[in-house]
Design a protein around this nucleic acid. Sequence first.
RNA 1: GCCGGGUUAGCUCAGCUGGUAGAGCAACUGAUUUGUAAUCAGUAGGUCGUCCGUUCGAGUCGGACACUCGGCACCA
Length: 661
Amino acid sequence: MFKITLPDGSSREVAPGTTPANIAAAIGPGLAKAALAARVNGEVRDIMRPFDGDSDLALITARDEADALELARHDFAHVLAEAVQNLFPGTQITFGPATDDGFYYDFAPKERPFTDEDLPAIEEEMRRVIARDEPLVREVWSRDEVRAFFEKQGEAFKAEWVMELPADETITMYRSGGWMDLCRGPHLASTGKLDPQAFKLTRVSGAYWRGDQKNAMLSRIYGTGWLNKKQLDAHLTRMEEAAKRDHRRIGQEMDLFHLQQEAHGSVFWHPNGFVMWRQLEAYMRRKLDAAGYEEIKTPQLMDVKLWEASGHWGKFRENMFVVPDEVPGTDPDKPVLTGTGDLMALKPMNCPAHVQVFKQGITSYRDLPLRLAEFGTCHRNEPHGALHGIMRVRQFTQDDAHIFCTQEQLVAETKAFCELLDSVYRDLGFADYSVKLALRPQQRVGTEEQWDSAEEGLREALRQTGLMDPRYNFEELPGEGAFYGPKLEFHLTDAIGRTWQCGTLQLDPLMPERLDASYIGEDGSKHRPLMLHRAILGTFERFLGILIEHHAGRFPLWLAPVQAVVATIVSDADPYANEVLETLRKAGIRAEADLRNEKINYKVREHSLAKVPNLLVLGKREAEERTVALRPLGTDARQEVLSLDDLVERLKTEMLAPDLR
RNA sequence: GCCGGGUUAGCUCAGCUGGUAGAGCAACUGAUUUGUAAUCAGUAGGUCGUCCGUUCGAGUCGGACACUCGGCACCA
């Protein structure tokens, strides 16, 4: 007999062969119906899988949403696979897990990859599979049985996969009617537990077998899956809302920037967008000045010799733009370039140039730490498939800086950086961020002692800054560091819960060595400084993209491209409106006037859709009384009538950048 | 780079099986002087991504290339 203990502490004795489903039935028919799976000794298991000893049991129902969703999504993936094999005989199955909002399954198609047009038919077939309500039965097989089975079925990928499972793993197959898949489980008791209206196939894509570019390209089908239709609809609505925040869409609607074919991967900033850039840059410059950084500007084009010395030519060349130092030929019958000039390269990073600045003259230990900052524009030849709006581009500007310091200064410098980063993120509305420490990778340089002290130095700084507090979701990532040193990563969370890695601090003892940077120590002899690569925003392009999506275009006043629009009701107010406009502009407020012969309704609608933060309405009354009716964005009909002086004072205060308040 | 979509007016999109392009919004002109999310009427606007091919004839069919979108891989 096994002793089964329930969450309320009660227990009961059951015979071997008893399943959680039996217990649920014994407790009551309601629970028997609601129970989807079981948590046995902490592990989620099939509800029909017999106990294998004394157990703690908690039955999982739809109320245990995270567990229930995970199970349902995993089942949807199986149903998808079965449906595809029904419709497309000869398609091989490979791998299909649950994801954050649904599931996918990778197939090796027999004839052609799947397209969006295949999805409706597959969805229908999935509903038929669900309607058949086949039990999902767990069976333990031997490795050789599984291999033989799949080889017979022509399932080469599954047959390959089973041979690579760890030797001690229990190999399980799941049977659903006549269909079988190699799967660890757990699953719901039958396909009929799924709500046929709670899923939607969303897209197709290619995906490499086992995630490796060298392997075959499989055809992946993605779906989103939920417990019921209401949840699915809510998710689809969220997706639509997220699409409305897309920076590419808002960039066009608000006339912030554009991209075009002839300069793909580089951004044309329009006046509206560049206003934001200038505000952000000016803000960062003030923060860096105050934090003891010195700003520099270094060359775009440098001789390949320097990139050879820094190591980029060896490790990063495929991502670099190389330019021959040669006068282009003008003879139409001859090639423009002969290829005889020395090679130069556009900088993909700023660090080697910063070391050159450090190396000018003799640096004493008294000069350290030396913090060299640059709003450095870099070019990287990114894979074309990676480009995305202004978030992933080929020309970008970093808020870059390199701190040259001694080993003893490491903790203090890291701590100071974390504090600066924290205050910037708070200022910019990203109080919610997480911190990760990437530790020594397999392939690395330096001694174990150097790594010990580097990693522990960063840990100590985090401890002192309080960033190991659980609210920063601190975690260490073993093996993820750069080959030359450990790395801090800062991931911020935006208004709709997505995370973006922006800030970084990388400890690099190698670059000063390679480029022969040294300082004279207290002992009168030469020493290698430590070098810290660090950025807070990452790049202006990407960070502005994040700000656009975070605020959905409704920017805080200090960033808003147009801060106020003066809109007239009658043309009699035009002269006064021009006067108001001029007063605002003289006060440094970014204002426009809308004197068009349109109704105020029309103007309110248009400027509201344009996300102008303040609408200043002027009619006959305001013109006579020399007042302004202020209608801030999003306040509907509520407005406030102010004197012109009061309005200017108010806007001037409200538009201060966060660090100036 | 890889897989699958897409590229038609400033924007969003329609254009069936090949017969020299169409809507809404925006723009422009006129009327209207209006009080808080679309006043009415009219006008103009496109070598259909580029190149090559098939055809009497190509936005439409075929090929190549470019860009772009969704993923995969990449993000030192």
